[in-house]
Design a protein around this nucleic acid. Structure first.
Lengths: 253, 253
DNA sequence: ATACATTTAATTGTCTGACAATTGATAATT
DNA sequence: AATTATCAATTGTCAGACAATTAAATGTAT
C-alpha cells in the first residue's frame, strides 16, 4: 500500500510523511479508511505505539480523523475551511510573535493584502456584509469598551470587509493576515482620540463599499495602515523611553 | 505549570491543547525546555505513551522540537519561515484540491493577492530579483520542456516577483496562494502558442518591474489571470466533452 | 596541567502485551 | 417485527522494559 521510507527521522515521522504524501498526491482519497493500527504496524514493521504517534501527527494537521468502535478507524479527512482557518491563524500568530518581525512589516503585509480585497468587496458585498460592518462600528463607539474588545471588533469589521469579496479562498488567506496580528494589536493602547480617528476611517470605508467605490476604499485602507503604524510607533517610543529615560543628550558623536 | 484540561477529546489532544495554549499566550517561551515525558506523565496523571502522542501532535505543527540524550527533551520551537512555508503550502494545496473549489475562484484569489505585491516589488526589487525572473523566462522558452517543468518555472518566476517586495510576511502569505495552485495548474496542457503568450506577459512583467512601473505590472497580472482562466476553461470543456460526447441535441424538454 | 579516552546518567525512541471504552453488526428473545 | 443482549473489531490507555543517543563527569596518559 505505501512505499519506502526515507531515513534521518524518527520512524513515526517517516510513516506520517509516507501517508501524508499518499494523501497529497491522491493515492488516498477523501473519506477513505486507512488500515487498522495493527495492520499498519505489521505493514511498516513497527509497533502499534509508533504507528499511533504517526497518526497523531497527521491528526494534528487535520489530514485524518479517527473513530472508535467496530467500523471505526482512521479516515482521510476533507480539510474544511473552519479547520484550515484555525491552523492559518495559529501559524500566522506564532510566525509574527516569535520572529521579532517589526510591526511595520507585518502591518504593510496585512494592509497590502486587504487592499487586494477591497475592490472585489466593493463590487460584490451584500447588504449583510455592510450591516455587519456598521454593527461593529457601532460597537467600537461604545464608551467603556476595553482595548481588547475594541481590537476584537476591529478584526470582525475587517473580516466582514474581506468576506464581502465573496471568495472563500481569499477569506482564508486573509484570516491569517488579519487575526494573526491581533496579539500585536493588543499591545497598543487606544486613546479616545485614536478610536475616533479609526472609527471615522471605518465609517468612510463602509460608505465607500456601500457606494461600490473600490478606489475610495483602498484610500481608506492606506490611511488606516498609516494610522496603525503611527500608533505602534508611539507605543514603541514610550517603551524605549521607559527603558532608558535619559538618552536624549547624545552619546554617539 | 499547566492548567485544567477540557473534556470531549482524547487525553493526548487535551494535553497537546493545554501546552499549545501555553505557548501561544507566552507562558512558555521560545527555546524553553518542557519537563521530561515521565514528569509530564505524572503531572497530568497519564501514561508516557499518551504524553508522547500529545508531543507528536505539537511537533507536527512545528511548535516543539525534541532532542535525545542527557540534556535532551522537548523545546519550544521558534517557528521559522522555511517550516511555516511548508505548512502553508500543504494546507493551501489540500484546501484547493479537496473542496472542489472552482478554478476561477482560486485563480482570482491568487492574482488579487499577487497584484498587492506588484506595486511594492516595482519599488523595491533588487537586480537579483530581476535576474531570477529573467532566468525563469529563459527556462520557460526552452523547447521540449515538460508541462510540469513549465509550471515549476512559472512558480519560481512568481515567487521571485513576490520576494521582490522585500516583505517576508508577504512572501509567506503568497507561498500558499501561488504554490498551492500548482496541482491545479498541472492539470493544464500548455500548447506552444499558450506558452508564447505567457512568456510574453512574463517579459512584460519583468520589464515593468525593471522600469519600476507598478501600474503596468498590475495590468500584466490582470492579463495573466484572464489568460490562465481561459486555459483552464479550455481544459474543462475538453474534459466535459469527453465525458458526454453527444449532448448537443437536447435531452431535457 | 592539558588532552584524550571511558564511564555514567538522563532522556527520548521503540517494543511488547495487556485491558478499557466505544460502536456497529449480529443473534436471541419477546 | 421490534426490542434487547451479545459479540467482535477498533481505537484509547496503561505499565514496564530495553535500545539509542548525548552531554557531562570521571579517569588516564602525555
Amino acid at each position: 500500500m505505501k512505499t519506502e521510507l526515507s531515513p534521518d527521522h524518527d520512524l513515526s515521522a517517516q510513516i506520517a510523511s509516507a501517508i501524508r504524501n499518499a494523501i497529497i498526491d491522491g493515492r488516498l482519497i477523501v473519506d477513505e479508511r486507512l488500515p487498522s493500527e495493527s495492520e499498519m504496524a505489521e505493514t511498516f514493521g513497527v509497533s502499534r505505539p509508533t504507528v499511533r504517534e504517526a497518526l497523531k501527527r497527521l491528526a494534528a494537521q487535520s489530514l485524518i480523523r479517527t473513530q472508535r468502535g467496530a467500523t471505526g478507524g482512521a479516515f482521510v479527512n476533507r480539510l474544511q475551511y473552519d479547520e484550515a482557518y484555525g491552523q492559518q491563524v495559529t501559524t500566522a500568530t506564532l510566525l509574527l510573535s516569535m520572529n521579532a518581525i517589526d510591526f511595520d512589516t507585518a502591518c504593510e503585509a496585512r494592509y497590502a493584502l486587504e487592499r487586494a480585497c477591497a475592490a472585489l468587496s466593493a463590487q460584490r458585498r451584500s447588504p449583510d456584509h455592510l450591516a455587519a460592518m456598521r454593527a461593529e462600528i457601532h460597537r467600537q463607539s461604545q464608551p467603556g469598551l476595553s482595548d481588547e474588545r475594541f481590537c476584537e471588533s476591529d478584526v470582525a469589521f475587517h473580516r466582514a470587509l474581506v468576506d464581502g469579496a465573496g471568495n472563500p479562498v481569499l477569506s482564508w488567506h486573509l484570516a491569517g493576515a488579519i487575526e494573526g496580528m491581533q496579539p500585536l494589536m493588543n499591545m497598543i493602547t487606544f486613546s479616545a482620540r485614536d478610536r475616533a480617528r479609526i472609527i471615522a476611517l471605518h465609517t468612510a470605508l463602509a460608505d465607500a463599499l456601500e457606494a461600490r467605490d473600490g478606489a475610495a476604499a483602498e484610500t481608506c485602507l492606506d490611511d488606516l495602515c498609516a494610522e496603525t503604524k503611527q500608533l505602534a510607533r508611539a507605543v514603541r517610543a514610550a517603551r524605549d523611553l521607559r527603558k532608558s529615560p535619559a538618552q536624549g543628550h547624545g552619546h554617539g558623536a
